[in-house]
Design a protein around this nucleic acid. Structure first.
Length: 110
DNA sequence: CTCTTGACTGAGG
DNA sequence: GCCTCAGCCAAGA
């Protein structure tokens, strides 16, 4: 995939789609992988437009493993349910065993 | 071009 | 560890 021909938003989507089932990553990790480590906010901002696409936005959380973006999903706990259905334990918007389920794109992708 | 908007992050207290 | 502040920067108006 030629990321250089895509807009920043599209790059984020491409990486997000690579997140394995039952794993999660952070906005900063994605940004870093894209070579824009200072644009973590943009990653989250980009996810705003991820609706309608096959982007697992629920697998992207902030560095603490907190579902900061759950408010952008339909229900109040839809994001949490999606994660739990994948085997990720979530309590009060906080991912449990975050270090275990964390998936770093810069380490798993070429 | 300028200004605003953030689903963030790291540093400092 | 928590809270607050400031820097970050792409996209859209």
């Amino acid at each position: 995939m030629q990321l250089d021909t895509l807009s920043f938003f599209d790059k984020v989507y491409e990486v997000a789609k690579q997140i394995p089932y039952g794993r999660v990553t952070s906005y900063g990790a994605i940004a870093k992988y894209l070579g824009a480590a200072r644009s973590a906010r943009m990653v989250g901002y980009a996810m705003n437009g991820s609706h309608g696409k096959d982007v697992p936005a629920h697998r992207v959380v902030n560095r603490k493993g907190v579902l900061t973006g759950k408010h952008h999903f339909d229900g109040t706990n839809l994001m949490q349910q999606l994660l739990e259905s994948e085997g990720v334990e979530v309590i009060e918007n906080q991912i449990q065993n975050f270090e275990v389920v964390f998936w770093d794109p810069s380490k798993h992708l070429s």
